[in-house]
Amino acid sequence: MRQEGLLQLAASRLIGLVPTLLVLITISFFLIRLAPGGPFDAEMAAPPEIRANLEAKYHLDEPLLAQYFRYLGEVIAFDFGPSFQYKDWTVNELIARGFPISATIGGLAMLLAFFAGVLIGVFAALRQNTASDYTVMGIAMLGISIPNFVVAPLLILVLAIYGGWLPASGWDWTWQRGLLPVVTLALPAIAYIARLTRGSMIEVLHSNYIRTARAKGLPERTVILRHALKPTLLPVISYMGPATAALITGSVVVERIYSIPGLGSYFVQGALNRDYTLVMGVVVFYGMIIILFNFIVDLLYAWLNPRIRYDEGE
């Protein structure tokens, strides 16, 4: 029964993704076409090889709508065309090169943010309105307020340049090089999740069934871990969708500061060089990932929370 409900929910959400994807692709296609001196513009001085590639790729002699539908089909088939700046590369190849690195850092940061954030939040909630609660939450607010492009140079300055304990930048798949980027990326998310968890845990601890659990004489550990934790995590789970978007955005800065050859670095380089096809490709690619994560989070949330009735709510 519940399985069926979930399947139905999954199907309806999946259909709901279609317009979002369509809007994403449409906006990026027409924005690029609007660009003054765009890649399809004869005045833009594109090297002749790329021009030829682009013209072949986008069938520039066809009417606009035909080009649009062709592009739509290609994006669905996951083909983003040649890069405008990197002569011998297609956008697909650049994504294949950069994304594994970005995904590793982002995934680790997300894990770290989830566990550290929940731990800190629970800690603060159990000591509500004490000095340690205020201290921890004050630091969490600082974590939200300090942009990661401020944290990163400061960490490099203290730990790498003055301390000499860690390499300042670069990438080679060792933990020494990964540590600072992952921590930098995770910090704001840790702070946000800690605040969420604290508020949610305090609310749950005031509910009747927790009082019942305590009245039964269950040890406090069991009350917290077995009864209070799961409902506490619901708002945190639903935050994981936006968190994905925030981490991806943050990775752009973090990769730049630590000179990591991830997708974010290519994206910034592309944006600065007006590499339209690359920028468009990365926007659509990351957009798809964010949409996909929101979808997974939605399902996870419904699965964890049997009270929810999506069909009745709307």
Binding site: I32, P36, A271, Y276, V279, V282, Y286, G287, N294
Partner: peptide, 20 residues
């Protein structure tokens, strides 16, 4: 809802790239 699911920062960047 639809716009909400889009990567906001990337669109701002796209706008900056396209329009200077």
């Amino acid at each position: 809802d639809i716009i909400y699911a889009l990567p906001f920062m990337f669109f701002v960047i796209l706008l900056m790239v396209v329009f200077g």
